[in-house]
């Protein structure tokens, strides 16, 4: 269980961060998903863990989107205003990666990757989920459908549209 979570936690964070555009929110979502998974599904067969974990993670992300929609646009603007006066980021956040580069430097040096990630971030939530689960996590269509709570046909449609959008972004 520990090894499974250690293997998946960074990718889960990136997924949540692409969906929420917010590191803190993403950390909360991943922590919540890990707690629920470890608490209720640890004794399930190992082969079912990825689909189960992603089901929980995607549910948490979906809940986040719902809460955000409920808060409404005016509330988001209020928060955005509050962020402007927020304290500077913790210096620890600026610790360099093991390769000696800051994330910003990595992105600046690799325009192609940065453009791709930015395009991924802008994808509609369902297309983003389908792309990440199928292409990055390697779940098959049925597992992805189960994790997303939709039909396999919807997964194929979302994935196809995501590919079209990303291709257009890279070729533009």
């Amino acid at each position: 269980m520990e090894q499974f979570l250690a293997d998946i936690e960074r990718r889960a964070l990136v997924m949540a961060e692409l969906a929420t555009h917010d590191r803190e929110e993403a950390l909360d979502i991943v922590q919540d998903a890990m707690l629920a998974f470890a608490r209720h599904y640890g004794d399930r067969p190992r082969a079912s863990w990825p689909a189960l974990f992603h089901r929980i993670l995607q549910n948490r992300i979906r809940d986040w989107h719902r809460r955000r929609a409920r808060r409404g646009r005016w509330w988001m603007r209020l928060w955005a205003g509050a962020d402007d006066t927020a304290e500077a980021p913790d210096p620890i956040q600026r610790v360099a990666d093991p390769n000696g580069r800051l994330p910003e430097e990595v992105l600046m040096g690799e325009d192609d990757q940065a453009r791709l990630l930015a395009a991924l971030e802008r994808l509609p939530p369902r297309q983003q989920q389908a792309f990440l689960l199928r292409v990055w996590e390697g779940l098959d269509t049925e597992q992805t459908a189960r994790a997303m709570g939709c039909s396999t046909g919807s997964v194929k449609t979302h994935l196809s549209r995501a590919m079209q959008t990303l291709r257009a972004e890279l070729e533009s």
């Binding site: 960074r10 990718r11 964070l13 990136v14 590191r23 620890i92 956040q93 990666d97 994330p103």
Partner: peptide, 9 residues
């Protein structure tokens, strides 16, 4: 992106 997460994260 996953491999270059900062130490605090």
């Amino acid at each position: 992106r996953a491999e270059t997460l900062d130490g605090a994260t």
